[in-house]
Design a binder for these strands. Structure first.
Length: 359
DNA sequence: AAATGTTTCAACCGCCCTCCG
DNA sequence: TCGGAGGGCGGTTGAAACATT
């Protein structure tokens, strides 16, 4: 291969398009269609290569281009499809009327990917990351745990007494962490388990309260218990990297709606340890909840990968229906099909809706 | 207000695939 | 069957916009 670009060495213009060029290209295609892209620039009086014209048309000038922020439904669809298709942007774009592969690719790289990473998910596999405590962060944890050991091994002196309650609380939590790191159970536990346990510790360290929505709000019984636990676990998972980022408030928007607005009895919100009303949850309680999440996430992933042959099952009905009736008249729309408007519960929706709404 | 760092996104690059003679 | 032309795609770049110091 290695074919040279069509515009190489021809003195053709590159870079941003002027409004005049846009008008020429738009007028020409509206009158004649694009036909052969290679010959189009000459016919349209443009000093551009055919590829550049094609890209400009597809990504910007096409009349059915949808502009503006991605809706929560679109985000959901992208996440679903990416989990199934990977970086097949054109295939994903075919399912999102009015969106281009380039736009989706950019949105993924600048927003969704970072969001997944910040939540402890691998953006490639869509599974929870198992390397959260790799190298540096693990060593940092151990160092902090040793610090807490040091603190607790000495009698309290005046300076220690001066320590604020926050610091003592942190030290206690770290000691617990040390216990986890040293215990035979944790030595044989999977990374995921450690991950979950530490999420809980971190939560406790910062004064968060594990909130069981079913227990606290009987109205939520309309949801299956597993679903609730699952969604709840996602709330926990969203605190996956606090050791690197203590700005928990920044993650607040990632929490499922009902978790950010729970009944006032147990404030799951991001209260600091200075809040005396915070009700602590024992680590063991927390672990039972979080560990339940492991099964749930695994099954979720399986479901996603299993549905390779029926992507419509993964899409919100509105989008599949829209794509079924939309004919863009170019090659990309050819991949769209009507399909079943059947909706499946999005594993991501609860996490992302809150955030997307803020856009 | 200026300098510096970060993020965003339009556009380009180059490889791969399909079509056709 | 082969090879070239054209189209499509995913990855990358770089300028502009925005944020922070």
């Amino acid at each position: 291969m290695g074919r040279s670009p069509c515009c190489e060495g021809n003195g053709l213009k590159k870079g941003p398009w002027s409004s005049e060029e846009d008008k020429k290209l738009l007028d020409f295609i509206q009158q004649h269609g694009h036909g052969s892209w290679i010959s189009l620039p000459k016919r349209a009086g443009l000093n551009r290569c055919g590829k550049s014209c094609r890209l400009r048309w597809i990504n910007y000038l096409r009349p059915d281009i949808k502009r503006g922020c991605f809706s929560p439904e679109e985000e959901q669809t992208i996440l679903h499809l990416h989990s199934v298709l990977g970086n097949k942007w054109s295939a994903i774009a075919a399912r999102l009327p009015g969106r281009t592969d380039n736009e989706i690719k950019n949105y993924w790289n600048t927003h969704l990917k970072k969001k997944l990473i910040s939540m402890g998910f691998d953006p490639v596999t869509h599974r929870r990351r198992t390397d959260v405590f790799s190298s540096s962060s693990l060593s940092q944890l151990i160092a902090l745990a040793n610090l807490s050991k040091l603190i607790n091994s000495r009698p309290l002196d005046q300076s220690a007494i001066k320590l604020q309650p926050d610091a003592l609380q942190l030290a206690n939590s770290l000691q617990y962490l040390q216990g986890l790191l040293q215990s035979p159970a944790s030595a044989t536990a999977s990374n995921n388990s450690l991950f979950s346990q530490t999420s809980c510790i971190i939560e406790a360290t910062h004064g968060y309260t594990a909130y069981d929505p079913i227990k606290e709000d009987p109205g939520l019984n309309s949801l299956s218990s597993s679903t609730t636990a699952e969604i709840f676990s996602e709330g926990i998972a969203s605190f996956s990297q606090p050791l690197q980022d203590n700005n928990f408030a920044a993650h607040h928007h990632l929490i499922p709606n009902y978790l950010t607005n729970p009944p006032p009895l147990v404030p799951f919100g991001f209260q600091t340890s200075l809040n005396n009303h915070v009700e602590r949850t024992a680590p063991s309680q927390c672990l039972s909840v979080v560990n339940g999440a492991d099964h749930r996430l695994d099954s979720m992933d399986s479901a996603l990968w299993a549905d390779y042959d029926d992507l419509d099952l993964l899409l919100p009905p509105s989008l599949t229906e829209a794509s079924a009736v939309t004919d863009h008249g170019d090659a990309k729309s050819g991949a769209s099909s009507g399909g079943s408007p059947t909706s499946s519960t999005s594993p991501w929706s609860e996490i992302f809706f809150k955030d997307s709404a803020a856009h």
